[in-house]
């Protein structure tokens, strides 16, 4: 099997998750080459051909140009699969490449199974196995699903050029102010959509106080304006790894888990016993948080 990996240069550096692309290739015992819009000073270590285009010329986000580059590398390599990360870069670029190649696309692969690719569905609650019916195939891999091992070797660089036209003009990048750093918190109590209304945040705060914990949130709580954006945990928020993480009314979507799976002990409170947060929790309390949180807080307080 021959794979063309699509590397990813993000925020002035090679994205760390790129290691997962090689981890996947190792699992398949595949021959690899990579195409990367990046910088010569910051290249992945591996043995194989690296089709390199300069990020200053082709931009960090210019998907139509990047598509041309990937297609050019694919033409030269004739791979069985073109493999990207299921990241903001990868899910945006992969369908463009698949459309041009008239190829099957399997998104968010988390594993291999019986000649097919395992993907999550129903917001992480369920799984299914997807088999491509055409060749080549384009895949996006869930970041972190295939290891983060250190790599070695030095690639053989080939410079790549493509049509410089783009109809998407990138005006720049920004980072919203954070101010709250949850990455060093020893304990975090997070509120999810299951809290139902802003009024119930008080229950979450009271538990956090009893535990000496910071308050965190899933994305819908932040989108609704119930808590500051800086408290969002997950793929598009903060990465946290406290000793105790309490998830109140959080279903446990893959994007939320991406930000908290490094936590020590995970306590989840959810009315749905099947909620995917149960896949990473140490303890799942099946209860309505409106009843349960005050009782838990009182029980903690009574121990002193």
């Amino acid at each position: 099997m021959k794979l063309l990996l699509v590397g990813e240069y993000r925020d002035a550096g090679l994205a760390a998750e790129v290691a997962g692309l090689f981890g996947f290739a190792r699992l398949l015992d595949a021959e690899v080459s990579m195409v990367l819009v990046g910088r010569e000073a910051d290249l992945p270590a591996f043995e194989g051909r690296l089709w390199l285009a300069d990020v200053d010329t082709y931009g960090e986000y210019a998907p139509d140009r990047h598509k041309s580059l990937v297609l050019e590398a694919a033409r030269r390599e004739a791979p069985d699969a073109v493999v990207l990360l299921h990241s903001s870069y990868g899910w945006d670029l992969a369908p463009r490449v698949a459309a041009a190649l008239n190829a099957a696309l399997v998104s968010g692969v988390t594993g291999l199974d019986d000649g097919g690719y395992v993907v999550e569905c129903c917001n992480g609650k369920m799984r299914r196995t997807v088999r491509p019916l055409t060749e080549p195939v384009v895949l996006t891999l869930q970041p972190g699903a295939f290891g983060q091992d250190a790599l070695n070797g030095s690639p053989e660089i080939r410079y790549l050029e493509a049509d410089g036209e783009t109809s998407i003009e990138c005006l720049g990048f920004s980072r919203p102010e954070t101010g709250i750093d949850l990455s060093h918190a020893v304990a975090i109590v997070s509120a999810g959509r299951g809290i139902g209304s802003k009024e119930h945040l008080g229950l979450v705060r009271a538990l956090a106080d009893a535990l000496g914990a910071e308050v965190g949130a899933s994305r819908p709580v932040v989108d609704a304006g119930w808590l500051e954006r800086a408290r969002q945990v997950g793929m598009s928020g903060q990465n946290v790894s406290p000793g105790l993480y309490v998830a109140c009314g959080i279903s446990g979507s893959i994007q939320h888990l991406a930000g908290m799976k490094g936590s020590g002990f995970v306590l989840a409170i959810n009315t749905d016993s099947q909620a995917p947060i149960g896949n990473v929790a140490d303890v799942l309390v099946v209860a309505d948080l409106v009843d349960f949180l005050p009782l838990l807080t009182a029980q903690l307080a009574s121990r002193c």
Partner: peptide, 24 residues
Amino acid sequence: PKVSSRGFRAAERKAPVVVLEGES
């Protein structure tokens, strides 16, 4: 179609989760 789908199933629970149910 370009792909087929099979094996629809619940996600595996990785950690041996303790599930607690009952009176609050």
